[in-house]
């Protein structure tokens, strides 16, 4: 079995894995980081989105062995020192989640959108959320959350205030 060594949420981890282990399985089963979810088999739904070397990817469509030496951040690693990431804060403030299942992937994608594009408008957010499916919210409040989270991340407004 190949050995894979990578950094997950700032912590170096190493394990012998069956080569067919997907990154999402590695996170959920080896590391018990169950915040990353699996909602489909065809790389459509985005519940499994994590950041690999700073970029959003679908962890259900990535082998763990492909991540040798990579820096992986999951939903569990987004808050720092007990303080929520502005995008997490914005999702709560704008009711951008209901059942919560798509939420980790949605938030990881949203952070990635802002990392790439800065403060984004509604049309861009809707287009950029192409790879994330939510069945609960109708996306209305997700869009509001990403708008506010983007402003907060880019220093234009705190996520909380933006809701008032």
């Amino acid at each position: 079995m190949p050995t894979v060594t990578l950094t997950v949420n700032g912590r170096q981890v190493s394990a012998d894995v069956d080569a067919r282990t997907l990154l999402v399985q590695f996170l959920r089963e080896n590391l018990r980081l169950t915040g990353t979810h699996v909602g489909c088999d065809t790389s459509q739904c985005g519940a499994c989105v994590v950041h690999v070397d700073g970029k959003a990817v679908k962890s259900c469509t990535t082998f763990a062995v492909q991540c040798e030496g990579a820096d992986v951040v999951t939903i569990e690693g987004l808050a720092k020192d007990g303080k929520l990431h502005p995008m997490q804060e914005a999702f709560r403030e704008h009711h951008g989640l209901q059942c919560g299942f798509c939420t980790p992937g949605m938030i990881m994608s949203a952070v990635d959108i802002v990392n790439r594009k800065g403060a984004v408008d509604e049309a861009t957010i809707r287009e950029e959320l192409e790879g994330n499916i939510c069945r609960c919210t109708g996306y209305h409040n997700i869009v509001r959350a990403v708008e506010a989270g983007a402003l907060a991340m880019t220093g234009k407004a705190p996520a909380r205030q933006a809701a008032e």
């Binding site: 169950t34 999951t74 989640l97 919560g100 980790p104």
Partner: peptide
Amino acid sequence: VRRKEDHRFITGKGQYTDDIN
């Protein structure tokens, strides 16, 4: 009022059936 349950969902701490082993 903002939802009490959200904290666990936005931090990846929800406990869905497949998370149980």
